[in-house]
Design a protein around this nucleic acid. Structure first.
Lengths: 242, 242
DNA sequence: ACTGAAAATTGAATCCGATTCAAAATCCGC
DNA sequence: GCGGATTTTGAATCGGATTCAATTTTCAGT
């Protein structure tokens, strides 16, 4: 009597297929030319079937964003499980973020669009809730590390809540992502290593919170060693690049 | 023989009318339900006439963003002309930004959407260039103040260029704007005074660059006095709020 | 004031792609 | 193998952006 279960499984598999197909089409042709009929065609189903899964194009876009967020969370969870000092884990969050961007190069373009009023409002409440729910545990992990850092005496929040610090750094990180992924605007604009700049500014922010400096900024070797250690201990199976 | 000139003037006036009308419709009904036919109707022209001005809906959205950016620039130019220390002028930039947001409450929602790949790519190259050009002088003013601050010994860039510092702070400011203006996502999320948080983080950043603290953070009165002075000397005709 | 070519304006018709839904195909317990 | 339930299909519909032929207005020349 496993019929129902099999059907559910097949349904879930097909949803994944559609998500992968859409992502591939976006990667190939850009978000602008994404068409529901093409997603269906490339997935080798009729449009009606695609609409069994996603009530609208907007729902599909939110679902894509949510799926990426789950991958994002999975990376952060490795860090949360990593048995290391808050200082090292906070740095590992940065490494995780970088790996996430590498593995989901289109995520921020899609997310930026999906969160715009026009797309957000057009999507169904259920999909919106899913996306909200996907973000919470990601923030929770960062807040947890901040709390651990405070407990370890690495950080002095000076009356501010861990959530506030997290939101503030999120604003910086997200602003940088948007800057980097802004389509075209910056074509002729020399943004030199914006992520390195972001790291520096994060460091300055954290220093402002009494964070013990991670490493002597001039000591690149110590930094590289830490990054290698994180890649080795936390993301060993994901870091193919040398 | 001023016929041509008059026609050009009338054309420009009508363009302004359409922009105002569109902004009003967005304020009333949201970006999602903006329709070209409604803009034309509310402006009391036929759609064809609207299309004389804007090649597409996307062009209209970029034009709206560009127009707001010009207002943004006008506020910053007051600061640039203000005869005060770099430190005070940098603070005045913050005040200018706040006034801008108050006077253009829908700007960031529109801009966030306009810069998404989908809208950006669909717009005409001319409109895109206009928007890019509108942003440059805004950044230049901030860079100029940063340079003045370095010259005055208020700021130690430590090898970083003023442009880089400006981009980094832009990422923080813009990330905060996006956070605050994100539609709906944060409905049930307690973002306590995100702008105050941003100011604090900006302060920390600038401190990290050796910026002499603006004021004793505990000395609210000195801060309020400075803000009052800025409103009085720079924005006297705009600050209606008590 | 009148005329006709040029410029501006109009809005009905077109187009495109998202979405629907009645029909056809498939599944599954008997 | 049957028949009702479920799933899939894709042609038809729909909504809104965009076009463009027809109409109206403008205005220099008379």
């Amino acid at each position: 009597m496993g019929t129902k279960e099999r059907r559910q499984r097949q349904f879930a598999e097909r949803e994944q297929l559609f998500l992968d197909t859409a992502r591939e089409l976006i990667r190939e042709n850009g978000l602008l030319s994404l068409q529901m009929s093409r997603v269906a065609e490339k997935g080798e189903y009729a449009v009606g079937t695609l609409y069994q899964h996603f009530a609208s194009k907007e729902d599909l876009l939110l679902a894509l964003t949510t799926a990426s967020s789950h991958e994002h969370l999975a990376l952060f969870e490795r860090v949360a499980r990593w048995n290391a000092s808050p200082r090292d884990r906070m740095f590992a969050i940065g490494v995780a973020d970088k790996i996430f961007v590498q593995r989901n190069p289109e995520h921020f373009r899609i997310a930026q669009y999906a969160l715009c009023e026009v797309v957000w409002r057009a999507a169904s409440p259920e999909r919106r809730q899913e996306l909200i729910d996907a973000g919470d545990p990601i923030a929770d992990i960062v807040v947890g590390i901040v709390n651990a850092a405070v407990a370890a005496g690495d950080l002095d929040l000076n009356g501010m809540s861990p959530e506030q610090l997290t939101i503030g750094t999120w604003a910086l990180v997200n602003g940088t992502h948007n800057l980097v992924h802004a389509e075209g605007v910056l074509e002729d604009f020399d943004v030199r290593e914006p992520y390195r700049l972001m790291c520096r500014h994060l460091q300055l922010l954290l220093n402002g919170y009494g964070w013990r400096p991670l490493a002597d900024p001039a000591d690149d070797q110590a930094l590289d060693k830490l990054i290698d250690r994180i890649k080795d201990e936390v993301f060993h199976d994901l870091c193919c690049e040398k």
